[in-house]
Design a protein around this nucleic acid. Sequence first.
DNA 1: AAATATTTTTAGACTTATCTAAAAATTGAA
DNA 2: TTCAATTTTTAGATAAGTCTAAAAATATTT
Lengths: 224, 224
Amino acid sequence: MSYTKTEENYLKAIYSLQVKIGKEVSTNELASSLETKASSVTDMVKKLDKKELITYEKYKGVSLTNLGKEIAINIIRNHRIWEVFLVEKLGYKWDEVHEIAEQLEHIKSEELVDRLDDFLDHPSFDPHGDPIPDREGNIPVRKEAIALNELKKGETGIVVGVKNTDIDFLQFLEEMNLTLGKSIQVEKIFDFDKSKVVKTGQQTVTISKEVGSFLIVEKIIQTK
Amino acid sequence: MSYTKTEENYLKAIYSLQVKIGKEVSTNELASSLETKASSVTDMVKKLDKKELITYEKYKGVSLTNLGKEIAINIIRNHRIWEVFLVEKLGYKWDEVHEIAEQLEHIKSEELVDRLDDFLDHPSFDPHGDPIPDREGNIPVRKEAIALNELKKGETGIVVGVKNTDIDFLQFLEEMNLTLGKSIQVEKIFDFDKSKVVKTGQQTVTISKEVGSFLIVEKIIQTK
DNA sequence: AAATATTTTTAGACTTATCTAAAAATTGAA
DNA sequence: TTCAATTTTTAGATAAGTCTAAAAATATTT
């Protein structure tokens, strides 16, 4: 099933307001968020309710169904991945990309955004620092910075610093593509020497326990 | 001024048919090309005529005004540049990209496509081999293959082959980014030894007369 | 050149998303 | 708890783009 741009924008707005205020979203709140009139909102929420994307009761506001939430999060995912592309690949400033991403987020193709996500090495946060949901709708949360060594198998962290500034070490990291902001996933830990196989983007590299102790990462937790 | 997706698709269809059949485009031809009904076409062409994007006379078909042609060519430019992106950067096959490019071509932002064009090193042809108009609407035409040396200052060629297959030479080309399909612009020719300063994408390199004689290019001519 | 076939246009209707203005329901204050 | 203020809904209209069915114009055939 596919939805109109307008429907998607309503779902996105309802999602954001719902997260912000934590209860049913009123007609007026939606109207002002979408810069439209309350009467237009009433019409549209009836339609979305009929499609089971939201639950709507007269005079009681709306909230998203599971399906509606899934769609809203997917649009937000599209938006933020496009923003990363615009900034990282096309050289836009982070404050110039919102408008264009508002358009690109509605392009109909799951595969396109997945490929773009690959191309961008699976970023966890957009250029504004907002979390990028994964394909399943899990939303990453930044945690306190820890050494890479503290990550367990399967966990993901984002490089936020180093504990060793030797030029050789920094050049090594550059070489391995383990630079600031990069997302690293631990694929395997060897028991005998605690060295690790980690993945950044397409690359898979093995790093020693020593390197792992010098790399500071923010552990990413995916939450529903 | 900005146009709706539908208006843009009409202009694009009229342009293609006009190029193909060389005279006024009839209502039925347009209807079948756009997979819609003749009555819908009549309505829309009246509207486009009123906006001075086409000239329309009852029962006589339509043709594009200069403005309409400009817009049509611009949409085609967008489409083909996005196709290059999808194939070269996201790894799509050339026969998988049309649908998505049909959506992306309508994104409203001149700057976006210009930046994308930079990012892709100003391709002259899309993955199907169709020419990509430049920002002014000039359309490149492939000419017979010649040696790079035969290009004059300011002219552009696309690398289609080499006359020397020494591994050293090929590695040199790889290094200089002068690989198959790359577009090369001659910036300067030194009289005394006929060496050339050429540009590929962001890079500017100097190559000797000898290298220039081994590189086979198709000269690109921009035509209105 | 008249009759027939084809193409094109018109008329009227439908859908989506919007609006204004008025009516109805809810909320909050005295 | 009743009356006023606010919010929400309804009713009816508008614009873009589409459709069907019928009328009008053009093209083709004999």
